[in-house]
Computed example of a mutant assay.
Amino acid sequence: MIAQNEVKNYVPKEVTQQREFLQNYQNYDGRGVVIAIIDSGLDVSLDGMQQTTIGSPKVIDCMDFTGAGNVDTSVIKEFNNNNKNNIIGISGRLLNIPSTWINPSGKWHLGIKSLYELCSEEALKNIIVS
Rank of each mutant, 00 (worst) to 15 (best):
M1K: 10
I2N: 05
Q4G: 07
N5A: 11
E6H: 11
V7T: 06
V7K: 02
V7Q: 03
K8R: 15
N9M: 13
P12W: 07
P12T: 11
E14F: 13
T16I: 09
Q18K: 08
E20V: 08
F21S: 03
F21N: 05
L22E: 03
N24Q: 15
Y25V: 00
Y25N: 06
Q26T: 03
D29Y: 01
D29R: 00
G30W: 01
G30V: 03
V33D: 05
I35E: 03
I35P: 00
I35Y: 02
A36L: 15
I37D: 03
I38G: 01
I38L: 06
D39C: 12
S40P: 04
G41L: 05
G41Q: 07
G41T: 06
V44D: 01
L46S: 04
D47G: 01
M49R: 00
Q51H: 14
Q51A: 06
T52Y: 07
T53G: 03
G55Y: 12
S56I: 02
V59Y: 06
V59S: 07
D61G: 08
D61A: 15
D61Q: 13
C62D: 15
C62L: 12
D64P: 03
G67I: 07
G69P: 07
G69A: 09
N70I: 06
V71K: 05
D72M: 02
D72I: 03
S74R: 07
S74V: 06
S74M: 07
I76Y: 04
I76T: 08
K77W: 08
K77A: 14
F79N: 04
F79D: 00
N80E: 15
N81Y: 09
N82H: 09
N82F: 10
N82V: 10
N83S: 13
I87G: 02
I87N: 01
I88V: 11
I88T: 14
I88S: 02
G89I: 00
I90R: 08
I90S: 08
G92D: 04
G92P: 01
G92I: 05
R93Q: 13
R93W: 06
L94Q: 07
L95D: 01
N96K: 11
I97A: 00
P98Q: 11
P98Y: 14
P98H: 10
S99G: 06
S99N: 11
W101L: 15
I102P: 02
S105A: 11
L110F: 14
L110T: 10
G111N: 04
I112S: 09
I112R: 06
K113L: 15
K113R: 14
S114E: 15
L118H: 09
C119W: 10
S120H: 00
E121K: 10
E122N: 11
E122H: 08
A123Q: 15
I127H: 04
I128T: 15
I128R: 13
V129P: 02
V129Q: 14
S130Y: 00
S130W: 00
